[in-house]
């Protein structure tokens, strides 16, 4: 006698689908505009990355690794990048990087202000929290479908899906960073006659910066984790290579592409973490 009564079945999914369809037909121009601006941005980044001479990239990674940690770390980083190059995946790496970079930049542009708003307005925070939870826990395939409908195939929906997946940490950690600024410090700012804007810019954001940087690190890592999934909707890059390898059961190719993603992840993680640590003040 188990089971839920059939009569009580309510197919909410249908309405969501209808809603997306309605968005798609009535607001096509809006989504086109968004698509175009993201694409414009993305292509410029991609072109730039692909234009960079390979040795310059190696040198850059080496120097940054050296400055942030030590010379050994710099050497290891450039070696890892070099290996990706030897796999013949240089261009793919750059395409992946372009998607990650654009997603992170857009995530920051949206996420930091949103985080500030949630920190300032408790009501807004109450609304945002479940949304952020949903964004982080919803299997990404689920929103790939509507995103695909609205933005079509290719890089833009990939960026969009990546943003959805990767933006919550920036928002959450910006919010946390600002909330954690000691009350007395904010009061001191006010007591000296600062406006709210001055308090935000001169005290709260700088104080929150180490936390925000940790958020940026997380967001970047999550964006990178998204590339394989994003490749399913046609974004070229390392993820696409993995996908192709899976389809062809090509172990060699799958290994190379997979390892490249891991290398890239390690480098990006250590670099952003190193930068984040730079923003810590003596405690």
């Amino acid at each position: 006698m188990g089971g839920f009564p059939e009569t009580l079945r309510f197919q909410v999914g249908i309405y969501v689908a209808k809603f997306v369809k309605w968005l798609y037909t009535d607001y096509q121009s809006v989504f086109d505009a968004i698509t175009h601006s993201i694409l414009w941005f993305l292509i410029r980044i991609e072109k730039f990355l692909l234009w960079l001479p390979w040795w310059l990239v190696l040198l850059f990674v080496f120097v940054v690794g050296w400055k942030l940690k030590n010379i050994k770390v710099g050497l290891v980083f450039s070696l890892l990048i070099f290996i990706i190059g030897t796999f013949g995946l240089w261009d793919h790496m750059m395409m992946t990087l372009a998607i990650v970079l654009s997603s992170v930049v857009i995530s920051l542009l949206l996420g930091v202000p949103l985080g500030i708003l949630t920190a300032y307005f408790d009501k807004f925070n109450t609304i945002m929290r479940p949304i952020l939870d949903a964004m982080q826990t919803m299997p990404s395939f689920v929103y790939l479908i509507p995103v695909l409908m609205l933005f079509g195939l290719g890089k833009v929906p990939a960026v969009f899906a990546t943003i959805i997946y990767a933006i919550p940490p920036v928002i959450r950690l910006t919010d946390l960073g600002i909330r954690r600024v000691p009350k007395e410090m904010v009061e001191a700012a006010h007591a000296f006659g600062s406006s709210s804007w001055q308090t935000l810019i001169k005290v709260q954001l700088p104080q929150a910066l180490p936390t925000i940087m940790a958020g940026i690190n997380q967001t970047t890592m999550m964006a990178l984790a998204m590339v394989v999934i994003a490749s399913m909707i046609g974004a070229k890059g390392l993820g696409m290579e993995v996908l192709i390898a899976i389809n062809r059961i090509d172990i060699a190719k799958g290994f190379e592409a997979g390892v490249s993603i891991v290398f890239l992840a390690i480098i990006i993680d250590r670099l952003t973490q190193g930068i984040a640590n730079r923003f810590k003040y003596p405690e």
């Binding site: 001191a188 700012a189 007591a191 104080q207 003040y281």
Partner: peptide
């Protein structure tokens, strides 16, 4: 704001210093 800037200043129990600023940058605030 003008009143707070010109007439009155506060010293706090737990100092309320801006830890992201150097000593002189605190004083300059």
């Amino acid at each position: 704001r003008i009143f707070r800037q010109d007439k009155v200043a506060m010293v706090f129990q737990h100092f309320g210093l801006f830890t992201h600023r150097t000593v002189i940058d605190n004083v300059v605030y």
